[in-house]
Design a binder for these strands. Structure first.
Length: 428
RNA sequence: GGAGAAAUACCCAAGUCUGGUUGAAGGGACCGGUCUUGAAAACCGGGAGGUCGGCGACGGCGCGGGGGUUCGAAUCCCUCUUUCUCCGCCA
């Protein structure tokens, strides 16, 4: 959500930004909001005046009663009673206008960074840099779930019987590898100075509504029957809601956290869960990084954060590239965003494993997350988030890039301590 | 899960029975000063937070959240949430 002052003072800037994002259908919203806001402020002015008069008269009744002037008090009382209707009407109008403005404001995209490449959709995203040689081995790399199954490490059939489509059992060394990757990612971020955090995996509806749109909620969130609770789709939901309506101390910033949680997603809509393997499923686990910082620091945090992802994947011997999201591919709250993509030697292309975003104050404004400056002023914080690692999808990259000709998996050195010193996963 | 008590501003806390002169006593912390080599202590002084509208004067809202009664609600009623004590149950 942007500052409504921008619409009051610089509508052209807001419109230009909408055009850059190829959302021309939203252009009329800007003038609509402008007009509604004018009416809203006029109405509020009238309502406030009416209430002020009513308050003054009510006080008068109190004074008259105390002085024993009952009849006079009754006269004023009748007068005030009649004002009720007018005030109710004005209040209803003000409420209605306020609500409409907020709804429309939610649809206005955040102002994007000047250097975001302009493009309509993800096909116009720009590869900025590669890290590591994308290797194509002279032997064939099997499909990831076949690799897992070759070690008896995956049982989707049983999961389908027990839980339905979109679930999995991870077994033995593959399950251990899954935990190892998460533990390694956790320690990697702790070493970078981030605070490890385990959040609630279920959140109330008011928290849900605070952190996502209605549409997102319908497509993603599982609701607990008979309770006002939802299973989280990512720890970002709990982690951001944690700060809703809070005023932080300047000395608290930056808040740098790495949170772990299982993630539950209905995956209703576009892709569903048709795909084989464990690429798109109802349940996965994720280590996330979240930063709340002062506005002047968010750009440098953004650079640090995507670099952490690159560094992490390189320590696992996985080649990656940084793909800068173009204007049309940026979600409305984002100021800038990039994907870190891992190399798939089987498909001989890169695929998304991390998504790093700077939301500037758009999320903070929506959730009222502020900090108090030394001079007492309050300002919205900037929020950023990035995936650290999200298995089992992430295991696809790990398994494919470390697959040996004999069908074994070479365990990257940094993971070996988490695998009991094992160097390889081999068929029995 | 059962019974009871509570939620007031940055923190503690009065006011709630008996609705009006309470945007809210009193402390603490805070800021300024005196004293001191400096600090602490003591004393003197200062302003009371938030939010929305307004160029401003000022005004609206606001005593955990939401709703109601009333001319008028921190105060009465309903509801939700949270905390504490006791009982029960359980990793």
């Amino acid at each position: 959500m942007i500052d409504i002052k921008l619409i009051r003072e610089n509508r052209d800037l807001v419109k230009e930004n909408i055009k850059k994002k190829f959302q021309n259908q939203k252009l009329p919203l800007v003038d609509e909001i402008y007009e509604l806001d004018v009416t809203y402020r006029e109405t509020k002015q009238q309502m406030d005046e009416a209430r002020a008069l009513k308050n003054r008269l009510s006080d008068q009744i109190g004074t008259l009663m105390r002085e024993g002037k009952k009849e006079e008090a009754m006269t004023v009382k009748e007068q005030v009673s009649e004002m009720g209707k007018e005030i109710d009407q004005l209040t209803a109008k003000e409420d209605e206008l306020g609500k409409t403005i907020k709804e429309k404001m939610m649809m206005i995209p955040n102002i994007i960074a000047d250097d975001v490449p302009i493009g309509e959709d993800d096909s116009k995203n720009v590869e900025e840099k590669r890290f590591g040689e994308p290797v194509v081995p002279p032997y064939e790399i099997p499909y990831h779930s076949d690799i897992m199954e070759s070690f008896s490490g995956l049982d989707k059939e049983a999961a389908a019987r027990v839980s339905g489509n979109g679930f999995y059992y991870l077994v033995g060394d593959i399950a251990r590898l899954h935990s190892a990757v998460l533990a390694y990612a956790r320690d990697f971020m702790i070493d970078k100075g981030f605070t490890y955090c385990i959040p609630p995996y279920m959140i109330r509806s008011d928290a849900v509504d605070g952190v996502m749109s209605f549409e997102e909620k319908n497509n993603m969130m599982y609701k607990i029957e008979g309770e006002d609770l939802y299973l989280i789709g990512t720890s970002e939901h709990s982690m951001i809601a944690k700060f809703k309506d809070q005023i932080l101390k300047e000395s608290d910033l930056p808040i740098t956290m790495t949170s772990y949680s299982p993630c539950f997603r209905k995956e209703v809509g576009a892709h569903g869960i048709e795909e084989r393997g464990v690429y798109r499923i109802h349940q996965f686990e994720k280590q996330e990084m979240v930063v709340l910082c002062k506005p002047e620091d968010s750009e440098s945090w953004y650079d640090k954060m995507w670099n952490y992802s690159v560094e992490l994947f390189r320590t696992l011997d996985i080649p990656v590239r940084k793909l800068v999201c173009c204007s049309g591919d940026l979600a409305d709250l984002k100021y800038r965003s990039c994907d870190i993509e891992a190399w798939s030697p089987r498909q001989q292309k890169y695929f998304e494993v991390c998504s790093c975003s700077n939301l500037t104050d758009a999320q903070a404004r929506r959730l009222a997350i502020r900090y108090k400056k030394e001079n007492g002023d309050k300002e919205f914080v900037h929020t950023l988030n990035n995936t650290v690692i999200a298995p089992p999808r992430m295991l696809i990259a790990l398994l494919e890039n470390n697959y040996q000709e004999d069908g074994s998996i070479l365990i990257p050195k940094v993971l070996r301590p988490y695998m009991g010193g094992k160097e390889k996963i081999e068929k029995k």
